[in-house]
Design a protein around this nucleic acid. Structure first.
Lengths: 346, 346
DNA sequence: CATATTAATGCAAACGTTTGCAAAGATCGA
DNA sequence: TCGATCTTTGCAAACGTTTGCATTAATATG
C-alpha cells in the first residue's frame, strides 16, 4: 500500500544493512551488554554511517507515554513589561529537560480557538501532564482540562480547592512584612493598590496588608485602597487618583510591580520625591525596578525556582501514574531593597 | 505480549462497541459523507459516550509528520528586563496554531545538555522545523541543526549566508533615522553604546549610526563609542564612562533598550536632566521605556509580527517539503516617541 | 430479471518502535 | 558424548492510526 515517503533511516534499514533482525538492532542500542560484542559493533558502525536516529514519537507511542508536558502561559496582553512568566517557563523547561521530558507551550490569548488547541494537546495524548499558570483550568464544549484525567499542577495560583496541587508564593506573609516594615519607620496612613477582584493574588495580597495592619494597630481603618488592574496603565490611573487625596497617605503598597511602574512614573512627574514624600513597596521582583529612579523595594518571587518545583511535582505525578494529593507548596518571597522607603515626612 | 496499560479508549474500542470495523470508524470521523448515515450516527454517538479522542501522536506517526515546530529561545540569562523574545514566542505560537501546528520551546542556557536536548527533538522527528532566535545554529558531537535536513528559519538575525531564511528588523535604517532626527535638532557630538562585537545586531546598528553620520556630515569623526553588553548592568558601566568625558556628547544612541535603562538610571542619578542636558534614543520598543522618567524614544520592532512571519515562512517550507531559497525578510521598526529628545544645550 | 454501476464496509499493511517468548547456538560439567 | 545451562538471535505482536484494495450490499439500467 502507498505510504508517505519519509527518506528517513529506520531500525529496519540498519537491520537490513547489517543482515540481522530489527529486534537485535533495537537491543544493541538499548542494552549493549545483551548482545554479542561482534554484532553490536557492526550494528553501531552501520547505524552511525547510515545516520540512524531513533524516532522518538514512535518509541513513545509504543511505550504509551509522550514524555512531554504542556505549559499553559497566561494571556500575554494582560502584562506589558513583566518578565515573571518567562522566568517561570525557563524554570519549568530546565527541570523537565533534566527529567527527560520535552515542553510544549501555549500562550493563552482569551480566544476559544487557543483554549481548544490546548485541550487538543492533552486529549490527543500529545502531553502527559499540564502546568497551568494564572489561568483557570479551561473547558471548551465537552472537553475539560480537569476531566481528562491527566495530572495538572497550578503555578502561582492556589487551586487546591479544585484538587489541583499548587505552587505559589507567600503573598500574604510578604504583605504583612511590608506593613511591618513601613510601620516601623513611622508610617500610619497607608494606600494599597489592588488588582482586579477576580485575581487570586490581588485578594491574597490585600488580605496580607489588612492582617498586617490589624496585627500592628488593631485596625485597618487607616488603609485607603484603589482597585487597579494587571498592567502598567492601571498604575497610572491609580496615581492620578492618589494625587487627588488630601491628606495623602505616606506609604504606598502595590499589589504588583508592573502596576507600580505606572504609578511611580506619574507621582514623579507630579513632582513628589521618593522616598522623602512617599514610600513605595510592591511585589514580584521585576528586575527593572532596580533601575528606576529611585529603585523600588519589592518582594522577589524567584519564579524560576517555582517553575522548576512545579515541573518536578508534575512529573512525579506522571511517573507514579494518576493524580496525587492536592498539596500546596508555598515559597517565601524575598525582599529586595531599593531606595523607595524612608520615614514619613514630619 | 505484555504491553503498558493506557486505559484510553481507542478506535478499536468504539469499533467493537458499535460492532463495526476500525476502518469504518476512522472514516466515519474523517469523511462523514463516505459512510452510511445510519452507521455514522451510531458511531458518533458511541464515540462521544465512550469519550473517544483520537491519539494525535499515532496519527502523526502514520502520516509521517509531527505537525510541530520547535522554537529555540535565546539564553535567558543575557537579558534581565527585556520582553522582546516573549512577544516573538507569542507571535510564533499563534501563527503555528492557526496553521495546525503545535509549538515546542527550548530556552537556551549555554549548556551542552540543553543544546543536545534541542537536537534530540529535531533528530528524533519530534518536530518538523525549527525557528532559532538569536542563537547560532548549534551542533553537538555528530549532530548539527543544519545537517539534519529539516527546515530552519532564523528570527532576528540575518543568517542567509548560511542558507537560512531570516526574518529581521531594519536595524541599519532605523539607526540612520535616529541620527537624522538628532542632527535636525542641532546635535553634533554623538555617543553610541554598542553591544558586544559578536552580536549581529550591534554591528548592524553601529553601521547604521556611522552611515547616518557620514551621509549627513560627510564624516563620523564626532562619534564616540562605548562597548557595552547585552544586559542592563552594562548600561550602568557605559554611563559611568560617559560621565568621565569632557566635553560630553549631547546625543546618546544606544544599541538596545535594556542597556539604555541602565544608562539612564545612572545619568539621572548624576543629576543630568533629560532631555535638557542630554538626548537619548535607543532600539527595541520595550514597553517599559514609556514609563521611565522621562519616557525614552525607541524604535519598536513589533516582535509579535516578526515571529508570526517566521512561523509562516517555516511552515510553508515544511508543507512544500525541503528548504526554500534563503531569503531575507526585513520589517521596518517604528519610532515610538518619548520625551527624551530635544535640541542640545547652547 | 439479469447485469452493470455505485455505495458502504472490511481486511490488512504500514508508520517505527519495544519486548515476551521461543528457537538456535555455544559452553560446560559429568 | 550427552543432556543441561546460558547466551545470542529472531519472530511476531502491540501501540493507535490511515488508507489502498477487495468484498459485499444496494441501486440503477436495459
Amino acid at each position: 500500500m502507498r505510504t508517505p515517503r519519509t527518506d528517513k533511516v529506520s531500525l529496519h534499514d540498519v537491520a537490513k544493512a547489517v543482515g540481522v533482525s530489527v529486534s537485535t538492532v533495537s537491543r544493541a542500542l538499548a542494552f549493549p551488554d545483551r548482545t554479542a560484542p561482534a554484532t553490536r559493533e557492526r550494528i553501531l558502525d552501520v547505524a552511525k554511517s547510515l545516520g540512524y536516529h531513533p524516532n522518538i514519537a514512535a518509541r513513545n507511542l509504543r511505550l504509551g507515554h509522550p514524555k512531554a508536558i504542556l505549559a499553559i502561559m497566561p494571556n500575554h496582553k494582560m502584562t506589558k513589561i513583566s518578565t515573571l512568566m518567562t522566568s517561570a517557563q525557563v524554570g519549568i523547561g530546565q527541570q523537565a529537560q533534566e527529567l527527560g521530558y520535552t515542553m510544549n507551550v501555549i500562550n493563552m490569548d482569551g480566544t476559544e480557538a487557543t483554549a481548544s488547541h490546548a485541550l487538543e494537546l492533552v486529549y490527543g495524548h500529545q502531553v502527559s501532564g499540564t502546568i497551568v499558570m494564572a489561568e483557570p483550568p479551561m473547558s471548551v464544549q465537552d472537553r475539560n482540562l480537569l476531566q481528562v484525567g491527566l495530572p495538572v499542577v497550578s503555578l502561582t495560583e492556589d487551586l487546591t480547592h479544585l484538587g489541583i496541587p499548587s505552587v505559589v508564593s507567600s503573598d500574604r506573609q510578604s504583605m504583612m512584612d511590608a506593613v511591618e516594615l513601613l510601620a516601623d519607620l513611622g508610617h500610619r496612613a497607608f494606600f494599597f493598590i489592588s488588582g482586579p477582584p477576580s485575581s487570586y493574588h490581588s485578594r491574597q495580597r490585600e488580605a496580607g496588608v489588612r492582617s498586617g495592619l490589624i496585627r500592628r494597630f488593631g485596625t485597618d481603618a487607616d488603609l485607603q485602597k484603589y482597585r487597579a488592574d494587571f498592567h502598567v496603565d492601571s498604575g497610572v490611573e491609580a496615581a492620578r487618583h492618589f494625587l487627588t487625596l488630601s491628606p495623602r497617605p505616606t506609604a504606598v503598597i502595590c499589589w504588583a510591580d508592573e502596576t507600580m511602574v505606572g504609578f511611580q512614573s506619574v507621582v514623579l512627574a507630579a513632582g513628589l520625591s521618593i522616598p522623602e514624600d512617599l514610600s513605595l513597596i510592591s511585589f514580584d521582583g521585576l528586575h527593572v525596578l532596580h533601575y528606576t529612579t529611585p529603585p523600588i523595594s519589592t518582594f522577589d518571587q524567584n519564579m524560576g525556582q517555582l517553575g522548576a518545583q512545579a515541573a518536578r511535582l508534575l512529573i512525579e505525578m506522571i511517573d507514579q501514574g494518576g493524580p496525587a494529593e492536592a498539596k500546596l507548596i508555598e515559597f517565601p518571597a524575598k525582599l529586595v531593597a531599593g531606595r523607595s522607603i524612608a520615614a514619613p515626612p514630619t
